[in-house]
Design a protein around this nucleic acid. Sequence first.
RNA 1: GCGCCCGUAGCUCAGCUGGAUAGAGCAACGGACUUCUAAUCCGUAGGUCGGGGGUUCGAAUCCUCCCGGGCGCGCCA
Length: 583
Amino acid sequence: MFEFIKNHISEKIYTNLQEFDVKFDVDEARSYEFGDFATNAAVIIAKKRGVSPKEVADEIAALFEDDKYLEASVAGIFVNFRIREDVLKEFVNSSLESIEVSKLGLNKWHLEFGSVNPTGPVSLGHARQAAIGDTLARVLRFLGVDVVTEHYSNDAGRQVNLLTMSFIVRILEKKGENVALPEDAYHGDYLSEFASRLLEQDEDLLDMAQNGGFEGDWKVVFDIAQNLDMEFLSKVAGLLGDNSGEKKENAEKGDVSEEEMFREKFELLKNFIVSVCRGWILQTFKRFRVTFDKVFSEKTLHLSGALKEVFENLQKAELVYFKDGAYFLKTTEFGDEKDRVLIRSDGTPTYFLSDLAYHLDKYRRGFDYYITVLGQDHHEYAQRLAIGLKALGIEADKFKVVLHQFVNLKEGGKVVRMSKRSGKFVTLDELMNKVGVDPIRFFFVSKSNNSHIEFDVELAQSQTTENPVYYIQYVHARICGIERKLTEKGIVLETAFDGKLDGIKRHLVWQLIKFEKALWLVLNSLSPHHLVSWLMETADIFHKLYTEVKVADNPEYWPLFALARKYIAQGLDLIGVEAPERM
RNA sequence: GCGCCCGUAGCUCAGCUGGAUAGAGCAACGGACUUCUAAUCCGUAGGUCGGGGGUUCGAAUCCUCCCGGGCGCGCCA
């Protein structure tokens, strides 16, 4: 409806005034008092013609004298439009059937978000990323887009080796060994807990691992854990290349098969603990009402030779050179300030190379757009990635990165520093335990992506009733309450609207029409907060209407309430927040 | 030093593809529950839109400089 009327206005002006080469705006009027829509066409066209804006404004207004949908009025240099009452009524009655919005068409979009190293719990930063990504996915789907959501799991490389090493240390601790956790290891308590549960053969831990993709033999993992010793740990340390000075001399002498066996054990342990962490992460996201169509493992790219292929393609294109023992990509040829390493001097691929392989994989799966939601700290990386994609010769402008600012946690008026490796942070699970899902999902998408968020834990706990999310949910609960009450009394509720649409009642209908505008704003900015603004405004108008119109005495207004509930429920669903029937 | 983002009411933030008196929530103050849930409503108060300059008929919005804050500038991911 919104987009339809908008187009109707501009088309009518273009067609009748024949000003094809000017660009003017048609949008919602600045204030509801002025009208529903407004255009600045008069001032733009007047300037071009060299006449007064008033003259053109009158001309435009005259065009709409017998318009089917609108009545126009001139206010200074603007022309304002009001939708006719019968058109509004028609909107109400058809929307009671189903909410219709202009669709985007048959686009296929790929959305990647909530991608995290499977090395620990979900942090608040990732939670914001997931809330944004999931809301975008829901909105896009509502707009008719074919969406695939994907979680990319960085389960290869040094970080997961470090994780495994930390896990081994924790197991040894449980077995009574006197070991210290290295500085750069993962210090969170969860690994210690997982170690205990593994040694106790806790079935729930196995479940978690299997949810995270573990397919190995659980008994074997248990055996390995049982028989871990300090020697094993020292071999692991060598594997990490921590002490680069003492490159393994034992490799020369050591029994090859023994070395292979050690490797195998290490890989299995790694596979297990990585799967546990990934299962945990996915479980947390699920609780946060975020699910993914696909979980993509970085490791599979290494195993399939995808990295090698990308590297060789770049080599063939003569974009790679060898220097200081490492292979560099000539990103400077594409505007980067310096060239980037693809393969390190120790022969291992960088994250950059595997990420290029990952994006090529996405590209080959064939989408119209590829969205990646990342924290603001990745902004420079995002640019480099775009450059890398150009080097690969794929359509880089189909890839869009949505950056969001951080979540700062405040406790006692102080900003809490969060770091995963130190284990000092508040996790999404903990926060959900404290305040529930709804306030968090709501809060994380209620500000623009570019805006920093200050999350005050105490405030969230102590003042939950003052959270705006309840203001919106209360609309839904109130309407459900009325319906219950009236139905109990045996009052038959109207299913079609034919009352008078004036004052606040008309304002509400207009607000519901603007739902479509809010969705398109989300689409164009890829920032979900516009939808929350709409929800707030809608709740505001509804609560006013509620005090003004007593449906019990005026049952003819019931369809307006029913419609408000429908829209509020839809809006809340799109941001992943529940619409309760009572509060 | 370079790059990205931010600076709007006491607090947290909308508004930024230029337009008509700058908005909301919270906090403050004063009212409204024998009436569909007061987790609500009505009212009051609160702003040189960080600062200077520029473009324009018109700037919170665009350009530029300055000040202040966050983040990033690895053969980490």
